[in-house]
Write a protein that binds this DNA or RNA. Structure first.
Lengths: 225, 225
DNA sequence: AGCCTTTATTAATTAATTGTTAATCTTGAA
DNA sequence: TTCAAGATTAACAATTAATTAATAAAGGCT
């Protein structure tokens, strides 16, 4: 479900690491670049959903980078957030309409960062990949109607089961660790036991048949035809 | 198995006790200190895996303590989590600048605490080098799906075997000593006998065929086409 | 509101898989 | 040829997941 791509651009490796780490933990796919030029190359290739762009960078600064990105048609739906130190001259940034969608201030606080990123992406809503329905073999998912189909026959799933299946199917074959599942479906704050996941998995298997969801012991679960 | 060392630092004995008790119950080895100075002394001596540091302390506060700890080379890999009252001004903490890896909020709820600590420590283990997929001759590795392929045919490997093969294949031809293998796959904490590696190697050879993994007697093992 | 139904979570038990060790055998380098 | 390093095997231990049933929480409906 939450497999949005995020590109982080900063010249300080430390920042890349902590921001990247915290977002990865939440299940996002993270790319990093340490200068404007590189970031544009990656952005073109990966088409991220969100780009977090440090304002202060040597050579090509964040605003310039942003400006160039905005002229790339494939990136016209991409969100861009500026990363800037508190107290840096806001007026200049704000005044210059480079097309940023939001601001994040340093020093970066993990919780704040994560919830902000979630908020930004939520705002974007419905668009791209996130909401794309998947169909794998006999199982199809309809996120809009919140139902799934098995061989064309509709099956109703409770919320948690639906989201779990949704996550697993969002990239068939890929193993999702319990940690990622937890963070994605329950969020960082809620704490539920490990067995809870098992039980939901079991219910899914009951309804879909055993062959789809596979256990990778010691690692996690994956969906496979 | 779970014998990670945790150092808890707080000026309130109550907190030390409740946190310490709950972590001991989970099998961790717990040390306590009631001020920054003492905590640094203990940290140097015991080299804990995780330090839980109260932000608000008389004399040397959590941030200052954290900062000093970060300058001690033996504590480079130690995780530090801040303990702070919910609602305390986060911006004042500027946690990541001082090098904290996570936050825990008071009041401490045992279950939340324990699972959070587990998560933090698990993370540490998982951080070890994000290796990329390789393909050598007839054998290909797919870390995302957690499978390997031999001539396109998928083979499922248990975790340890997968990681072992993964390591050997990460640089084909290179010999990995037992020591390196141990440290990479089991980590410094766990101690297992030498034969254990042999057994895993054997299982791999059974599944892949003998020709890929070569023994370099007196030195280690290597993967070769 | 109170009742009923569905969904979510937990706890306790069982089952399966995976990991480790110990004991013995084999091999190859000095 | 000798002998330490490694291979092999099977027994055993530990870990992890599956299952079941019970309980709690949420939602719907008169």
């Amino acid at each position: 479900m939450k497999k949005e791509k995020i590109l982080i651009v900063d010249d300080e490796p430390d920042i890349l690491e902590i921001v990247g780490y915290n977002l990865k933990k939440e299940g996002y796919t993270v790319f990093t670049a340490n200068n404007g030029k590189e970031s544009i190359k990656i952005a073109k290739k990966e088409n991220p959903d969100l780009i977090i762009l440090d304002v202060m960078m040597p050579e090509m600064d964040g605003m310039e980078t942003c400006y160039q990105m905005r002229n790339i048609s494939s990136l016209k739906d991409t969100l861009i957030a500026f990363l800037s130190a508190r107290g840096e001259d806001y007026s200049q940034i704000a005044g210059f309409d480079a097309g940023a969608d939001d601001y994040i201030t340093k020093p970066v606080k993990p919780r704040v960062l994560v919830s902000k990123v979630k908020a930004i992406l939520r705002r974007k809503g419905g668009t791209t990949s996130e909401e794309k329905d998947v169909e794998v073999g006999e199982i199809a998912i309809d996120r809009e109607r919140y139902i799934i189909k098995k061989k064309g026959k509709e099956i109703n799933l409770p919320k948690k089961e639906f989201e779990l299946l949704s996550l697993l199917m969002s990239k068939p074959g890929r193993v999702y660790t319990r940690e990622v599942i937890m963070n994605t479906i329950w969020g960082g704050e809620v704490v539920v036991g490990d067995r809870t996941i098992d039980v939901h998995i079991r219910k899914l298997r009951e309804k879909l048949g055993d062959k789809y969801i596979k256990t990778v012991k010691g690692v996690g679960y994956k969906f496979e035809a």
